[in-house]
Amino acid sequence: MTLTFEVDPAVDPALRDGVLSLWADVSNAGGAVGFVPPVTPEEIRPALLKHLVAMAEGGTRLLVGRDEEGRIAATAFFTFNTHPLMTHWVWLYTVMVHPRHQGRGYGRDLMAAVEHTARTAEGFEAIEAIRLTCRGGTGVDGFYAKSGYKEVGRVPDAIRVAPGDDRDDIIMLLPLR
């Protein structure tokens, strides 16, 4: 089975709850998506609301992947730059695949859908690159490298997961042109 991807899905309670559930499940499985386990959907809700507000204002776009049962199984948020010298690239945030689907190639499918969206979707015509950051020590930078992203910077010990557990903030870029 594969995931079905959609850009800019309708924001309704089902979408909101599906993303919250996904985000909590990914975080609690050890995913590096802004929280440290244990975390509840209610603790994540303010971060999601920031994304949803940015979507309503037109500065952020959402790509969701749904599994064969229609559940939200993957996400990636694109955030456009407002700085006039940086409008030619987008940030990619909250890249997630549900733990029950990991190991099936869905992460590769998500990253291919991200690239396809940035290359072809309406509103992305001026975008020349995708930039993301990831937490060091997780191995996810290797995954992104396999998807064509190059490490372009690293801030040592920028992320404090817990007292005495600082991780690098790794900056990666995928040129589209």
Rank of each mutant, 00 (worst) to 15 (best):
M1D: 10
T2R: 02
F5R: 06
E6V: 09
V7F: 07
V7A: 14
V11E: 02
L15F: 08
R16W: 01
D17I: 02
G18N: 01
L20I: 03
W23K: 00
G30S: 02
G31S: 06
A32I: 04
P38A: 12
R45E: 09
L49A: 12
L49K: 07
K50G: 02
H51W: 02
L52M: 09
V53C: 03
E57Y: 11
T60P: 01
L62E: 01
L63H: 09
V64W: 08
V64H: 04
G65D: 10
E69I: 09
G70P: 03
G70W: 10
R71F: 09
I72Q: 04
F77N: 01
F78C: 02
T82I: 11
H88V: 03
Y93E: 07
T94G: 10
T94S: 12
V95P: 01
V95F: 03
M96W: 07
H98E: 05
R104Y: 04
R104S: 11
G105K: 07
D109E: 15
M111G: 07
A112H: 06
A112K: 08
A112T: 04
A112S: 10
H116S: 05
E122K: 14
G123Y: 15
E128Y: 15
A129E: 12
I130T: 12
R131P: 03
L132A: 12
G136I: 11
G139D: 07
F143H: 14
K146M: 12
V155W: 11
D157A: 15
A158M: 10
R160Q: 13
L173I: 13
P175Y: 12
R177C: 05
